[in-house]
Design a protein around this nucleic acid. Structure first.
Lengths: 352, 352
DNA sequence: GCCATTCCTGTAACCGGTTACAGTGATGCT
DNA sequence: AGCATCACTGTAACCGGTTACAGGAATGGC
């Protein structure tokens, strides 16, 4: 009983019996296979009796449509790609990323679409990804935080693949749809909250300035101060890379540079968390001496001591909108950029 | 030039020109389309001239194969599913999970397979997942830490879908292949290392006992002590849930219960990290008074103060093996369980 | 009674590949 | 020379769906 003796069967390997096809169902139901197809798609007139007969036959035979045959005939694949282009896969360590991925997975599942995950880190993988995506395997692509100048983007755009990005993609506004949180407004509201609580020496631990998030959050911080009539002091701004460590380092720097410091707005929860041990070591109580607000409202925020106020990044909303926009793009609508509002979640680190 | 005026073309929407097919390439190369197919697959004899002519025609036309047509003809989909069945998506917050996912993505990419990510958390999603996976959309399924009694498993097994799990699946040993780290040996080597360093009162912060990881690591700990001739003291064992917080709580408990404590072996890096502030607060120096070893060697381990010794969980190796095993399963081989070795990474928290 | 319309159904062509089979010309062997 | 073999190639059938088109039966209007 050598495996080579088994005659070639046109079914998936390991499956003993052949799967029923639309023809089998038709024979069972006593109608033509075109009628079965019509019942399946439900967009044409079929008599109630035929519908019932076909429905019965389907349950009796256990029929399920062959997705590849369907895709071949319709030209739609029923799947979309979630593409990560980040060379350093920082994204994977970021809990926000996981939340976004999960949200997208849910939104797609609800629409009966499948999620193809592609990681294009090495040049090799990137090449394969472009070939694959341009090759019509998927109906569209979801991109997370793409680098604006990435040649991969232009290649995909040239191949006319529908694309929706998370965060604006500079230089591709008319060809790539995007969904972004209103980070500027979020940052501004955080700082306004601190001002309203009486703080006057508010420092900022900024994110990388080559990301839209880092830039927008810093701008929101500065604009809130300006609007309140306070000067924007360069000494009160330090730069981190979103990480816990960089937050700690930034805090040490701020303690040195900013006398009378009474609040810190960090551009990420991780950086805000990094400030806590430094502040404790320096004998500054949070929120007694220094009030603290983070950004993202990641799972982290609520578990810290004290629980951290944070600007809620509505990732569930973002993922939902990304999928919706991609659907419209696939249906032929023109690209579109939308912004979703953030909200401030107050916890003990900055009481009202 | 209204979009509605464009006649219905059987190509993906948005694409202006029709994509070249194998027939176009054949015409361009002056051979039959069967020959083109043969060049593409390379498993049959084709004259060198024909090969060149076809290759040229392909580059000239920019041809790429239609994956759906190919799948329809071959019965292979070229894609595998990565299925998450965890109702509480703890997995997503676990950095190990991300590493595993990334490893699998790489291994599949190298084999020109695509990764379909499915999250089956709600009953609805679970139903859809079973239908989808049983329906022949994918060539196989990769499972992470499935619950042994999960009805979803039996359904997939009944549908004869090739499955490889990460970690043994009790009750399905003969139908589901699995890849697991040798956690017992890893735990044992960690404790042996502590014993060799002169420690005699070694405590263990165990993982959940309804997971194979939790059980195996505890067993390795106990066996190492027994083999050394030391008693296994129930008081020196506390139970956590892998989390930082549970590690801290466990450590507080141990300080109370175990006099003369000189070492702690934690079943996860997160729990080991949780012990550090507690130990510091109690005035115990690491590694001076208490030596500490974690498990998983996650990114966390090296960034702690002091850097944490840890048992390296070879997730890259595991993902690679999972994909390899699934390939064999798809090719018709019988299910198989394999174990990959762990290694101990020494850092400052437990010098040799 | 005749024709148009409406509702429903079947036939056939098509999507774009793979592959069994038959056939061709060149070469090798006897 | 005759035949088998080899190396290669083309035709045709097939995978399992969707859908344009051509009817057929029933209904309604004149």
């Amino acid at each position: 009983m050598d495996a080579t003796m088994i005659p070639t069967v046109p079914t998936s390997p390991g499956t003993g019996r052949k799967r029923p096809t639309i023809r089998d169902v038709a024979r069972e139901a006593g109608v033509s296979y075109a009628t079965v197809s019509r019942v399946l798609n439900g967009r044409e007139w079929v008599s109630p009796e035929s519908v019932r007969a076909v429905r019965d036959a389907i349950t009796r035979t256990g029929y399920t449509a062959n997705p590849h045959a369907r895709s071949l005939a319709t030209g739609r694949s029923g799947s979309i790609a979630f593409l990560l282009t980040e060379p350093q896969h920082l994204l994977f360590e970021d809990p926000n990323f996981a939340v976004l991925l999960r949200g997208v997975a849910q939104a797609l599942s609800a629409r009966e679409l499948t999620l193809i995950l592609m990681i294009a880190a090495t040049p090799e993988e990137r090449g394969r990804a472009v070939t694959y995506l341009s090759g019509g395997h998927v109906d569209g692509v979801l991109l997370v935080s793409p680098h604006s100048g990435d040649p991969l983007l232009s290649q995909l755009v040239r191949a006319e693949v529908p694309i929706v990005a998370c965060g604006k993609v500079l230089g591709h506004e008319t060809t790539i749809s995007s969904v972004a949180a209103d980070e500027w407004a979020g940052a501004r509201s955080a700082v306004e909250h601190l001002l309203a609580a009486g703080c006057r020496r508010i420092a900022h631990i900024a994110g990388p300035q080559d990301t839209s998030g880092g830039v927008e959050r810093l701008r929101g911080y500065a604009d809130a101060l300006t609007a309140y009539g306070l000067p924007v002091d360069e000494a009160a701004i330090v730069h981190g890379d979103w990480s816990h460590e960089s937050g700690a380092a930034g805090m040490r720097e701020l303690l040195r540079r900013v006398p009378g410091l009474d609040a810190v707005f960090a551009a990420s929860d991780a950086m805000a968390a990094g400030t806590l041990p430094v502040l404790r070591e320096a004998g500054r109580d949070v929120p007694g001496d220094v009030r603290l607000v983070g950004f993202d409202d990641s799972g982290l925020a609520a578990t810290l001591h004290p629980p951290l106020s944070s600007v809620r990044n509505p990732l569930d909303r973002i993922s939902e909108e990304m999928v919706r926009l991609l659907g419209e793009l696939v249906a032929g609508r023109t690209p579109l950029s939308i912004t979703v509002p953030t909200s401030l979640v107050l916890r003990e680190s900055s009481p009202a």
